[in-house]
């Protein structure tokens, strides 16, 4: 079957098998390997992408179901050489060590800040609670998101496809 969707602001139209999962479509068919493939059971959250601005586990979503929707992956966070403040925050506050969970963590953080520009620590921890990090103990991830919140209030931030949920 044919599937059409927007990925990081670009229209894509591809021939797929209906059983193709979104994570494999993004990685193998579009070559966007920033989205990681982890537990395959919707537990670890490293495969999180944004669909219409909302974090979704792409290992438990069919590519066909994303048809007609806006998908954003970690590759779409940087625009014209400018890092998203969330990416900058992860760099400034050491929000990663091995980096495996990072793409999903950053996209969930992006969606959170689009909905709530000044989240409390409790709200941040709840928002990322569907994602597992085995390096940082989460404290530096929380600080990274707080850094982004503090630094983006001054500038207008949009996702590449402009779809804040």
């Amino acid at each position: 079957m044919q599937v059409d969707m927007t990925v990081n602001g670009q229209e894509v139209s591809e021939e797929i098998e209906p059983r193709h999962l979104l994570v494999h479509f993004i990685r193998d068919q579009l070559g966007l390997t920033g989205t990681h493939w982890g537990c395959d059971t919707s537990n670890c959250g490293t495969c999180v992408v944004l669909i219409d601005g909302e974090p979704v586990k792409s290992c438990t979503t069919l590519a066909a179901m994303a048809g007609g929707h806006d998908v954003q992956t970690v590759e779409g966070m940087e625009v014209d050489g400018e890092l998203d403040p969330v990416q900058e925050g992860f760099m400034q506050c050491h929000g990663l060590q091995c980096g495996f969970c990072t793409p999903g963590m950053m996209l969930t953080a992006r969606a959170l800040l689009n909905n709530d520009p000044n989240p409390t620590e409790e709200v941040i921890r709840e928002a990322i609670s569907g994602q597992i990090c085995r390096c940082t103990g989460y404290s530096t991830i929380v600080r990274s998101i707080q850094w982004a919140a503090a630094h983006e209030s001054a500038v207008t931030v949009g996702t590449s496809n402009g779809s804040a949920s």
Binding site: S42, E54, T61, T108, S129, G130
Partner: peptide, 9 residues
């Protein structure tokens, strides 16, 4: 029930 990302779907 599950986690916030799963609850989105």
């Amino acid at each position: 029930i599950a986690d916030p990302v799963v609850r989105n779907r």
